[in-house]
């Protein structure tokens, strides 16, 4: 019996001859690249005035945008809106200027592929106003492209002295 067991075991052991073996499997990887956009802006900008007395207050908001619009039919925009008017009261106001003609206005500088707003725009608390537009198949760089808005605020003698704060929201969209 012991001999038989030995024979069987030994034969099994020497019978294990190695042969390489392999097989494969396949996966289809799908990807849809859609229109997309993002923007980052300065968190805070301060107005200042220089030169002659009662020259307008000025400030500059710099931003970086990334965008991809649809190949044939896409468009894109960057807009801005005053979402919180200046406070406290007694100073400048976008919604209710203390003097007719007081306004927060701006001009735009936008790197290609964007086209900056033309001329001087007047900011609003009730509607978004244009900063830049984009055409079909527009692509920024991977790091993003730059732009800026140069603000100008009437320096009205009627404003009470003090610090005033407003919130401006920039929105970028792509189709």
């Amino acid at each position: 019996m012991r001999k038989l067991l030995f024979i069987a075991a030994a034969t099994l052991f020497t019978g294990a001859v190695a042969f390489g073996q392999s097989n494969t499997g396949n996966t289809t990887l799908n990807l849809t690249v859609a229109h997309e956009a993002s923007i980052s802006v300065d968190s805070s900008d301060n107005f200042s005035t220089t030169g002659s007395v009662f020259n307008p207050y000025t400030a500059t908001t710099n931003f970086t945008y990334k965008i991809r619009t649809t190949k044939a039919t896409g468009t894109g925009t960057i807009t801005t809106e005053v979402t919180t008017d200046f406070s406290p009261t007694g100073g400048p106001s976008v919604t209710t200027p203390p003097t007719a003609g007081d306004a927060l206005t701006y001009s735009c500088t936008v790197a290609s592929p964007g086209t900056g707003c033309s001329g001087t725009q007047t900011a609003s608390t009730s509607s978004a106003t244009s900063v830049a537009t984009f055409g079909a198949d527009a692509h920024s760089t991977a790091a993003g492209n730059s732009g800026s808005v140069a603000w100008s605020l009437t320096n009205d003698p009627v404003y009470g002295t003090g610090a005033y704060t407003a919130t401006v929201t920039f929105t970028i969209s792509a189709t």
């Binding site: 996966t27 289809t28 990807l31 849809t32 991809r68 692509h139 991977a142």
Partner: peptide
Amino acid sequence: PALTSGTYTAA
């Protein structure tokens, strides 16, 4: 952003 919009497939 440089990618062109569209649908793509790889194996």
